[in-house]
């Protein structure tokens, strides 16, 4: 064993490659809610970008270290400490058996990611070790980590790089703008006309948005259609719901928009109280935005196409 859980916090899970190709069976892809941040952590350690890491939610967590290894912390803005001594985010941190790694509560953003050299072992189910709690799939017994859980990691060696270059450290803006394709082909619609607030109903399944309720959504029950992370649905009460990585696979509410592939990683960092806007894009513009984003990251994360899903 190489890490054990001293304090699991609100919800800490093992997340890695998404579980693709099972939505027709009602099984969502799961994976990190912010895959870009997991990739940045793994990058510092020379791991594959989506090697299994720990997704720590809002409240922080503490781990005991049982082996000499290197770790890195990215994602939501948190304090990091080893044996109560402050360390930086976006840095390769060498730790030894007996050390204690503490991740503080998120000051902005919602999820931080802890990567360990060689990755963290998880139960692989249906081709992925990403945890999907509702069905008990993957991760550590298919559940969020509990105090005392022991995690296996490959004992190793040295980091690939000391730290993430400044220009590749995500900003700390509290207002997000998500680019999205409108279900109405002209790109208009009430979703795009106002600023929304992330409500307290926010988890890996989705985020309810507060704002001026959208009128005319009481259309009765529609036949269930497939839905995907990034879909903005609207129940009859007019409060839109933005789906995230653990989203249900079918839905019977009206659909307003689909967040473009380039921006879905941003959803994982939205926290209650954050403001949010949607910017309309056509599907063709959306592909161009994705290529621009991949070009931007290519120097530090070469071959990062699969990180944006």
């Amino acid at each position: 064993m190489s890490l054990h859980v001293l304090k699991p916090g609100l919800q800490t899970t093992i997340q890695g490659e998404p579980r693709r190709g099972f939505r027709q069976l009602g099984i969502p892809a799961a994976g990190p809610a912010d895959p870009l941040s997991l990739a940045l952590a793994n990058r510092l350690l020379g791991n594959p970008f989506l090697a299994n890491g720990l997704e720590v939610t809002l409240s922080g967590a503490r781990f005991g270290v049982d082996v000499r290894t290197v770790v890195a912390v990215t994602g939501a803005d948190v304090d990091v400490a080893v044996n109560r001594e402050a360390r930086g985010m976006h840095e390769a941190i060498e730790v030894r058996a007996g050390d204690e790694l503490a991740i503080g509560g998120a000051k902005s953003g919602a999820r931080s990611y802890v990567a360990v050299c060689g990755g963290i072992a998880g139960d692989t189910m249906l081709g992925s070790a990403s945890t999907y709690i509702p069905a008990g799939l993957g991760g550590h017994g298919g559940r969020a980590l509990l105090k005392g859980d022991e995690l296996a990691c490959a004992a190793s060696a040295s980091a690939a790089d000391a730290s993430t270059p400044q220009r590749y450290r995500p900003g700390r803006e509290i207002g997000a703008a998500l680019r999205a394709c409108s279900v109405d082909s002209d790109g208009s619609g009430p979703l795009f006309e106002q600023q929304w607030q992330v409500s307290s109903r926010a988890d890996r399944m989705g985020i309810q948005l507060d704002g001026k309720p959208i009128a005319g959504m009481d259309t009765g029950r529609l036949p269930s259609v497939p839905v995907f992370p990034g879909c903005v649905q609207c129940p009859p009460d007019g409060a839109p719901f933005l789906l995230s990585v653990d989203a249900q696979t079918t839905g019977g509410y009206a659909r307003l928009a689909q967040v473009i592939r380039a921006d879905r990683h941003v959803i994982g960092q939205l926290r209650p109280g954050d403001s949010l806007r949607f910017l309309p894009r056509t599907p063709a513009e959306a592909v161009a935005e994705l290529r621009t984003k991949i070009d931007y990251w290519a120097e530090w994360l070469p071959g990062c196409e699969a990180v944006f899903y």
Partner: peptide, 21 residues
């Protein structure tokens, strides 16, 4: 990437970097 049916519908998710719509 995903081929999913709904009630009388079918949705395909594809890799838009590799495949033209």
């Amino acid at each position: 990437l995903e081929v999913v049916t709904g009630i009388d519908t079918l949705t395909v998710q594809f890799d838009c970097l590799q495949t033209e719509p």
